[in-house]
Structure formats: C-alpha cells, structure tokens
Design a protein around this nucleic acid. Structure first.
Lengths: 197, 197, 197, 197
DNA sequence: GATGAATGAGTTTTCATTCAT
DNA sequence: GATGAATGAAAACTCATTCAT
C-alpha cells in the first residue's frame, strides 16, 4: 500500500536523523508500526531505502529551486534556496552523511544531485550577472555549502535548532564579497564524468 | 607497553580515516600488528578508543593554537589555525562524524573541546580587537566552522584533495566582512552545561 | 480454475528441475504468470506442491509400465521401462532428491511408489520367467535402480546429457548376468509397513 | 582449538547426513555444543564447511585407494575400493548431494575429485589389464558409480542399512561382463578442463 | 602483559504462509 | 477465485567484548 510506503519513509527519515545510517531496518520497521518483512517489500535493500529518502529530499529541493528561479530578485532567490536546503538537511542528517560517500553508487541519486547542481547553477548565474555575488562562485559551490553550513551548526542542533541561520548568513556574506582576492582553488563539478564542457 | 598504545592509536586513526567509525576492532588490531585482546587491554571499549583518537587530535590542535597565539599578526594566526584545523579533519574523518553526535558522552573529549574553544577564543579576540574580523565572531564560531568547511569540501575529497582551501578562504572572507548586517542568530557555547565562569 | 493448476504444475516442474527444491514459491508463481496467493489456493503447502509433481511423474511412469507390459518381449519391455524412468528423472531432479527423504510423509506419493513397484514387478516377473534376467531381481530393485542410474550420470548432466545411457546399459548387463553368485543382501520392499498381502 | 574443529566436523557431518545440506549452521553449532560464532571462526562460510567435510572424505578415500593399489589381486582391490567408497557415502549424504552440483566452485574439492579419479583409474587399469573387468570402464566410471550405488540403496537406508551391498555386487557383475555389447555412450572425465590428453 | 578462541547479541535479508480486498 | 501486501520465523554472517592460557 502507498500509505505504508509513506509511513516507512517517514519512520526511516526520523530514525536515520536520530541514530545515523547505522540504525537498523528492524528499528525502522518498529517505528513505522510494521513488520520487518514489509520494509523489504517496499525497499529491496537498506541502500535502496536510503537512496529513496535522499531522492525524496533532492526532488523537493530541486522543485524549490525551480520555483525560486521565477523570482525577479536573484540574490534573494539564491538566499532562499540555501535556507531551504540547509533546513532540509537539518531535518534529515542522512543526506549529509551520504552525500560525502561516493560509495553510494546509486545512479538515481547521482543524477538527482547533478540536476540539483544544474538548477543551483541557474540561480547562481543570475545572481552573478546581477553582481550580487562573486563572479567565481558556481552552482556546485552553493550545493556543497548547504552541507557545510548544516555541519557547522550540527553540534548545536539540540540546544539551538536555529543556529544554522547564523552560519548561513556568514556564508552568504562571504559569497557577496566582491573586492576579495580570487579563491585559492578552482571550482569543480561533483560528478565530472557527466558531460564534457 | 606504552609503544603498543602508540601503535594502536596510529593504526586506529588510519583505519577510521579510511573506513569510517564502522571499521572493526579486529581490523585495527590487525593493522597494528597486534591481537584483538590487546586493543581492549589499552582501551576498554571502542568508544574509548575513538575518544582517545579525538583527544589526541584535539590536543594537537590546542597546541597549534597556543603556538600561533604568539604571533604578532592576529588575523594571520587565526587563518593559520583554521587551516591547521581543517587539514586535521581532512586527514581523519572520525573527528567530524563524532563531533556532531552528542551521544559521545565522553567527558574528556568534552573538556578538550571546551579548551579548544577557549584557545580559539583567545586567537579570535585578538583578531577582533585588531579589527581584522567581525566583532560578533567567537572562538566557538571558529571551531564550528572547521567541521563545516571540511564538510563542504568532503564530497570532492578524492578528486580534489585541496578543495577545502577554496571554502576556507570563502569562510574567511565572510568573517572579514565588517560592514555587514549583524548575524541573525546569537553565538553560543558548545557545552553550556560546563560550570559557569 | 483447472487450467491454472496445470500452469502451476508445469512451472513448478520446470523451476524445481532448474533450481532444485530450494526454488521459492514466488519464483514458481512468477513463471506461471500467476500471483503467489494462487499457488496456495491450489496447493496447501510447498510440500503438497512437490508431492503433486512427484505424483504426476509417478503416474506417467506407471502408465508407461502398463503400456509396455503388453509387449511380447519382456526383456525389451523392461529395458524400455528403465530408459523411460531414468529419462524422467533426468528431466526433473526433484524426484530424485525427494525419493530418498523418508521425511516426505505423503501417503499419496507412498501409494504411487508402491503401485509403481507393483507394475515394475509385473514387468520384471515376466523377464525373470523368460530367463532374460537374474531370478533374484525384484520390481523394487528395478525402481531403485532408476534413481541410482540417474545419480551415476548426474555429475555429467550438463556436459553429457545422454551419459545415463552408458550406465543404464551397464546396469542392464548386471541384471542379465545369470551365472553370477547370489547377491549378498536380500531384496526388500520400499514401504514394508503397507498392509501385508 | 583443534579439538573444536574436529567436534564441528563431526557434528556437521552428522547433521548434514540427517537433514541434508539445508541444515542450519546454528543447528550444527548446537550439536557441537558450541556457539554460532565459533563455527564461523573455523569455517568462513557454510560452503567452506561443506567443502571441508568433502575434502576430508575424499582424502580418506584417496588414501584407501592408494593402500589398496598395493594388493596383488586388482579385481579384489577394485571391489574393496568401491565398497569403501559407497560405505563412506552411506555415512555422509553430503558428498552425494554436492558431487552433482557443479555450482560448488571449490577448487580444493575439484582437485581432490580429480585426484580420486586418478587413483581410481590406476586401480581400474590394472583390473582391466588382468581381464577382470570390461576394457571400456574408466576410473571416472568407477567413481561415478559410487554415488549411483549409494543412491540406489538410499531409500532403504533406515530399514536396511546394508542394502547397498546388494547393489554394489550388481554393479560389479555389470563391470565384470566381458562378452557384452559395447556401452552406448563413451566415457568422460568429470572435469575435462584439467588436462588435455 | 599479550594472545586469540569463544561467545552471543544483533544485522540484513529471504520466504512460506495468511488474509483483506 | 485471484491478488499481492503483510507477516514473522529463520538463516547466514559480523563483531565488540570476555577470558583461559
């Protein structure tokens, strides 16, 4: 049933957020009020479940980016995008843990990350053109920063759930600096095999 | 034997850096050229071993900070400290993974983090007073940023091991901005439960 | 539906032949183009399904024996019967695997095996009387030899699908010897618990 | 400890003989009076355990063959070898179940089977030369017959543990026939990739 | 002190079987 | 009658931890 799938995704998201990816499938089943076997009926393996959660979040974030791209003010759109992104990570540690592991060789997730970088680049390009941010910043930079900002605030998560706003603003201030030296390392794509440009 | 303890710490650091915290005690023992039982003679549990590694790294970092505090140029000292810190994280994923988990209820590590925040605050205060960075930035902010910058570059780690330099510079640029709005969330200590001083 | 039953028996026969008795009910349902639940509507349990397949094969073999019994030449009839029997086993490993397990306490199968031994005995008796085979050989011996001959050639099954013919002939040569010593162990019925007749 | 290894091999042999290869590692551990983990300390996987059992039996059988080869009377030596072989199978069904599964891609076992065929061929060759058996029979035929004879008697195993002697004699009588037609299918090696001859 | 064999709880995953639709 | 979602009892295998030698 489609409702059980939702139940499982919710339970898994919450469980992974709380215990990390090492949380057991049994725990997730229990929290969803279902039997172990049912988890495997919906997601063939633990990796599949993790991938599904990440895809869900990535798709949401891509949608947000596309909606924000219709805004006139590119700088505000970019800031809103980053706020949405960090907030999504705060609600679900899984994303962060897995985005750094290239071992998750899930093509669906890889593709979604590429798409996310693409829409981020669209937003970023407009902000660059409007002179709102440094000219050297790419969409991939912006996506990478999401996880970085989240991580910065993560140790405070329980005591200060909104602390990420402080570090997001700090990062935005860094992006907005226009009279600074060129950054010391060139930008790079996350999955450079995607397309030769 | 005190030499075995060193062997184990080295092997464990390398193993955790490579395989993450899920690496088994057996693997660590093997890499140290010792038997499993010996690991438990030196470290009562896996968590203890992890804590010892973190302590080692934190102590090194505290030492670095203290040495840098003797420098005249506070801004340069702070930048060097952050570079050392991020580099240490890059060399050892364990730190990052654990710092966000308040579940590591190890008082030794908590104390060391507090001390690190203290020396970082000393460095930061001088930079603030010299007008080199925003007046609202605290030592804790700086410590938190270490993990954040590392995480930002983490997905590129294999392909671009030096990418963290790009994001460190970006963060420093954010810190150096002086004409920006006040940050939206107040600063906070990492372990506010410590005795109030 | 009676047609679904046929579909299932065919699919199960093929599946067990290919994958052995460990093949899953789901796989069988899938190959039959039906749902798992339907398998259980037709066969109360996996053991029941296996028993049904064996019954089918045994019935076919009994029919063959009855038809061959009308032949004049008893020796040829017996040889043909054995060839049919071994060929049936070669086409379906299940039979062989299960015949040796007294754990399959299925009375239908036991009865069918008894009937098979009976018709085999009819054929064998005529061959004995015609002096074509040793006088001490029983129908049960002949039935047991079917599985034995199949097993002899089984390791070559993939590379040499017809190898059983070699060992069938060898066995027949053994049966035809008339000047040999009496066999060292007396003949026995397969299911001596059957009503004494 | 070496004694536990023996305990496990014994328990596993008995368990597999009784329940077939589907018997669980847990059951084996239990029968050996050891914990589950201990089984895996001695045998890395279930397949490894099965392979170890088969190797043990094959090595014993090879030894027997070599000893018998010193006998003057080649026919008697061959008969003794076959009796030993069938008896070994009767004591351990595992061998039979696995010899037919080329899926057990264990090179150690494959090599041992080859060696067994080689010594069997040595025995067989002498019997052939002494005119005691048909000239077309190979060592591989003899090895294959071991499992076949065992299988023939298998259904009687509980009621008549010695019934295999009846079918062994029958097979020997087949081998001894010298005035029979040539067998219909040529002989073949079990692992023809071993050496081109 | 060091060893490594033994332990057993815990993990992912499979699958026969049941049952509401 | 048919379906396939749900179940939960195994199964193979891992690993932190203990302890006799």
């Amino acid at each position: 049933m489609v409702r059980n799938r939702q139940l499982l995704l919710q339970a898994a998201t919450a469980t992974f957020a709380e215990l990390g990816t090492e949380a057991s499938m049994g725990e997730i089943a229990h929290r969803a009020g279902l039997a172990k076997g049912t988890v495997f009926r919906h997601f063939a393996s633990k990796d599949d479940l993790i991938a599904a959660i990440m895809l869900q979040m990535l798709d949401r974030l891509i949608g947000t980016a596309e909606r924000l791209d219709e805004k006139e003010d590119a700088a505000a759109a970019l800031a809103d995008f980053m706020a949405s992104g960090v907030e999504a990570l705060v609600a679900d540690r899984t994303f962060c843990a897995v985005i750094g592991q290239p071992s998750l060789e899930n093509s669906g997730v890889r593709d979604a990350i590429s798409r996310l970088c693409d829409v981020a680049e669209t937003l970023t390009a407009r902000a660059r053109e409007q002179g709102a941010i440094r000219s050297e910043i790419t969409g991939t930079d912006v996506v990478l920063l999401l996880a970085g900002i989240h991580q910065t605030a993560a140790p405070l998560l329980t005591a200060q759930p909104q602390a990420w706003r402080r570090y997001l603003e700090l990062a935005l201030d860094g992006l907005r600096v226009t009279n600074a030296r060129t950054l010391p390392h060139p930008p790079h794509a996350l999955h450079p095999t995607d397309a030769p440009n």
